[in-house]
Design a protein around this nucleic acid. Structure first.
Lengths: 255, 255
DNA sequence: CGCCTATTTGATCTGATTCAAACAATGTGG
DNA sequence: CCACATTGTTTGAATCAGATCAAATAGGCG
């Protein structure tokens, strides 16, 4: 259902370009790398919102490249409280870890209708055999994800709701900018306040009040799934945001 | 100061054995792997308690293998609040990431007097060239660390202080057992309550009260830097602990 | 229009912080 | 071996950030 033919033909397909663009945001690739990446067999699929891609206990034989939309990783408490661990944007391979960790230990799901491409583990291993230097590239990507988790821990553990929200928004804006998915100081952010709260470890009600505070302070505006930063420096200060941990190859000029 | 000669001779040195033991807790090695690992040049050093090994902004050319003692990674808020991100036990290479992320983005320090061994990045790359399958082993280790971060986020974001403490203690006991550093249901845990609080994102005072609650419920006893689990099943229930995320090669029988 | 989901507001409650101080343990130098 | 300093643990009381409960309001959308 909703699947399409493997897009293994055009090495310059938009799907491959999405991946290349992401990798080039964190590392320098040469032409041979790009060419080899362009031959990765992809199976594209469209998924509805709120659909799990992999779940705890799964043992997938493929990874998932997000092409369009928005996804998140999450865990839940036995009493049903959800904690979102990371947001994933187009170009990300959120479950790259499954290459070396057979059993998935968290959940990955879409937040909005999304287009994804599946890449067989075998295809990645073939790629690594052909271009051994790409191992370091993908490894680096997983390490940057880990760095984001560490910042997330600091955020949830030691900042108040206002600061947490500011930091999260800074991170999202920076990441979307780094892969060319921001429109000036605006980004698409089609998430509910309940989802933001689950990411920040706070209640929906308090999420709402924290957002209102950010708005009242003239830092951002957020409505209709679209976020606009009104005062980047102020937002950075509020969230104590330092993008170093994102290890971008080309740090953005002012954000 | 306090350094020793590279221990590159005896492939079966206790230092190398520590590393091998750790890796074998998460993966199966063959004899050739062990032999090659045994030839890794190590530079052993003894460090006092509360000594930073690497700091944000550093660009080390080596990794650090913890041999004896206890270390932690941490970040701090601008107003000085510290958040501990992970504890590291003998056998761990806490800053393995520096192999692919030039600039360190968090801090790593000892909690007690510790013995560490430094491994030059070049030596690791040589090892990977000789035994390419070890790339996956070390990559896997970094991925497991990331899985621990994810659980840490859930812990700090969605559990109350009592549950957080229980979960943390379960994790530490399980990890120490997996590398043969537990004595039955007792482990060395030479950390202050302030440090535990920094790991859990709670104040020292509340850390104390949470520990008292765990004691009162007959789950653990903790004094003089030594933790004894009195009721493993109860502790697991209190912390909702499921060790899957540690991806141990040989899950422990009952803990 | 009516249904369903999301946002917003108000009021109340509580887990955890903060402040302050007592107490215990360990170590140091004389 | 004791006086003293230092660090860690414990207790109590006041306070607060954020949770919870409840309900109103505002948007989509078939």
């Amino acid at each position: 259902m909703l699947s399409r033919e493997p897009a293994r033909s055009a090495e310059g397909s938009p799907e491959h370009a999405r991946l290349v663009r992401k990798l080039e945001s964190i590392v320098d690739l040469d032409e041979a790398d790009r060419e080899a990446l362009g031959r990765l067999p992809l199976t594209v699929r469209v998924l509805p919102a709120d659909t799990d891609i992999v779940r705890q206990g799964d043992r997938p034989s493929q990874c998932c490249l997000l092409l369009e939309g928005l996804a998140c990783r999450y865990l839940t408490t036995e009493e049903g409280k959800r904690q979102i661990l990371s947001f994933h944007i187009p170009g990300d391979i959120p479950d790259l870890q499954s290459l070396h960790l057979k059993e998935i230990d968290d959940n990955l799901g879409t937040l909005v209708p999304s287009r994804v491409a599946f890449i067989a583990h075998g295809a990645l291993l073939d790629l690594f055999r052909e271009r051994p230097n790409l191992v370091g590239v993908f490894w680096r990507d997983t390490l940057i994800t880990a760095a984001m988790f560490r910042r997330w821990i600091l955020n949830v553990g030691r900042r108040d709701a206002y600061g947490r929200m500011a930091h999260l928004l800074c991170e999202l804006v920076t990441r979307l900018k780094s892969v060319g998915l921001a429109d000036g100081w605006s980004i698409e952010l089609p998430v509910t306040q309940a989802e933001l709260g689950d990411a920040l470890g706070i209640s929906t009600v308090h999420t709402n009040r924290s957002l209102q505070a950010l708005r009242a302070d003239g830092l951002v505006s957020l409505r209709g799934g679209s976020l606009t930063v009104k005062d980047w420096d102020g937002l950075v200060r509020a969230g104590e945001f330092d993008p170093t941990y994102l290890h971008l190859a080309r740090p953005l000029r002012s954000g």
